[in-house]
Design a protein around this nucleic acid. Sequence first.
DNA 1: TCACCAAATGCAACTGCCTTGCATTTGCAT
DNA 2: ATGCAAATGCAAGGCAGTTGCATTTGGTGA
Lengths: 152, 152
Amino acid sequence: MEENSKYKELLNREGIKSTRHRNAILKLLEESEFPQTAEQLYITLREKTASIDLSTVYRTLDTFASKSLVLKSNRVDDGKALYELNHNEHKHHLLCVGCHKLISIEDCPIGELKQTLKNKIDFDITGHKLEIYGYCHDCKKYKLPPSDHDNL
Amino acid sequence: MEENSKYKELLNREGIKSTRHRNAILKLLEESEFPQTAEQLYITLREKTASIDLSTVYRTLDTFASKSLVLKSNRVDDGKALYELNHNEHKHHLLCVGCHKLISIEDCPIGELKQTLKNKIDFDITGHKLEIYGYCHDCKKYKLPPSDHDNL
DNA sequence: TCACCAAATGCAACTGCCTTGCATTTGCAT
DNA sequence: ATGCAAATGCAAGGCAGTTGCATTTGGTGA
């Protein structure tokens, strides 16, 4: 299968072995629309491919993160770790507080701030993280009165 | 002591009892320059005031958070919960990756994004969180080559 | 192709953060 | 003062994630 050779090449480039599990996890992440928890990935892997241990999933994801192949973050509401493929593109996420859907966006408002801060207080921005909460199209109709999320 | 009566009033306004522990935690949060973990608060409380149980600290902080008296967030690197007093002011922080100094700013770039996202994908923003990394004036001279922080 | 070795994996036990159940204590209204 | 709901302490438990160790596997060199 030529898909696996693609992963193999990618992994070799990072100086780590290409294994059945690693290829499967890369493939799964590639197919995932949203960042996934380790457990979500674990369950899916057990369903569709061979047996795998949860610790292997964690170890693999950590290895990938250390090589910058995947990006690790923490879910806002429960602090669980989320993993997604690193496409090396700059993006942010919208979290719907209604259905917990995560939507990726390319818009980034940091540009002008960068210059403002440089002028105002001589601070050089090298990175940032922006999390946005709100209600998606589907959840607006069920919108609840303002809650804790409004303070974030 | 009249400081406690200030806390008592605050707590009564939220419809919850004023207790020794609650007053102490409010006071401690008021004195804290940065968001604290539950354990940091716990340790400090044990040192300077009477005995308190860790579960009480957690329960108190959760209660305060549910009343919006404190803001709860998750530390970026290890996902631990952080608690800080809610001053109801909108602000963000600059984290200097050189000296780990935390600088508060009032600038917020979310305004235009709000309208953009509403038009583009029908998403209603209710809140957001922005963390900015970089080098402060003092650390610029020692600036290191780009690191992990640049991906955040 | 084979044999070897470091790296990867499975399994089970364990850690750390946080939560919960329950008996006791405390704040506050009456 | 007294009674009751709310708060607390204590101990046990839950859950995400980690680790130690024996076994298996991928890749390299003969």
